[in-house]
Every structure is written in C-alpha cells, then in structure tokens.
C-alpha cells in the first residue's frame, strides 16, 4: 500500500469520530520506482493531508518531508521529487494500521490492509 492510499483512508469503526490518520506500524517497507509526473503531483497537493503524509513517511523511515508545506514549494524540483517518493514509491508491505481513537489494529499483509470489521464494530 502506497502512502497516497493511506492518506485517504480513515478508521471505519462505528462511532469513531477521529479516525484519521491511521497510525502505521511498520514491519516491512518496500520501494518501487514510479515515473515522475509533475502535473499529477501539483494536482494531488491540494487534496493531500500534508501532515499525515509527512508523519507517515517518517514512520516508514523517510525523513525528508518538511512538517509543513505550501503550494509555492511546488516550484522546487527537489521538493517535488521528495513528495513524489513519499506519496508513490514507499509501500507498507507488512505491518498494521491503527485506529487513532480506539487503538484497534488493522493488519497489513503482502501490502493489503484488512479493513473488515467485526460484527460489533459495524
């Protein structure tokens, strides 16, 4: 799972109001190279929760993203490359996503988070 997917996903347990962002527990991270697409990055910047992305990438062992970002930074090639790497090239392969409100863990195996709920959580 890429961090772009993580950035959209909230804890879906019934009654949880602060389900975002899901905390990441890392067992294994893999990297896969992706073609650099500036227009896509500019477009996504407006939709991304930056703090969640910066924090998640740090958890995954990549500490190059600044804590805060604004759209003027999109003029910098260096910034765009880091943003690209964090958003699209880091994959959580093994580990878990943790609901920030309840601590419930959603396991991630072979890159696939299991967000299925138990009966009493729906």
């Amino acid at each position: 799972m890429r961090l772009l997917t993580h950035n959209m996903l909230s804890s879906n347990i019934k009654g949880v109001t602060n389900g975002f962002p899901l905390r990441i527990e890392v067992e294994k991270v893999i990297e896969k190279e992706v073609d650099f697409n500036i227009d896509f990055l500019r477009n996504m910047f407006a939709k991304i929760e930056w703090k969640a992305l910066a924090e998640a990438s740090r958890t995954m062992g990549y500490s190059e993203l600044p804590d805060d970002a604004e759209s003027s930074m999109l003029d910098s090639d260096e910034f765009l490359r880091k943003f690209h790497h964090a958003l699209l090239e880091l994959h959580l392969e093994e580990g878990a996503l943790v609901c920030p409100e309840t601590g419930r863990k959603f396991p991630v195996n072979k890159g696939i988070p299991n967000m299925l709920l138990h009966e009493d959580e729906v």
Binding site: L4, M8, F20, K32, K47, E49, P113, L116
Partner: peptide, 20 residues
C-alpha cells in the same frame, strides 16, 4: 502494473471526500 488493494466491505468504507 502497480495497484493498491484494500480488503473491506464497501458499505462501511470511510475515504476522504473527493480524493478519488
């Protein structure tokens, strides 16, 4: 091809608005 997957029940999925 790279494709992400999420195992879930569509009926109780919670995704941020309009990211897709």
């Amino acid at each position: 091809l790279d494709m992400d997957f999420i195992q879930c029940d569509i009926r109780n999925l919670r995704l941020s608005d309009r990211a897709i």
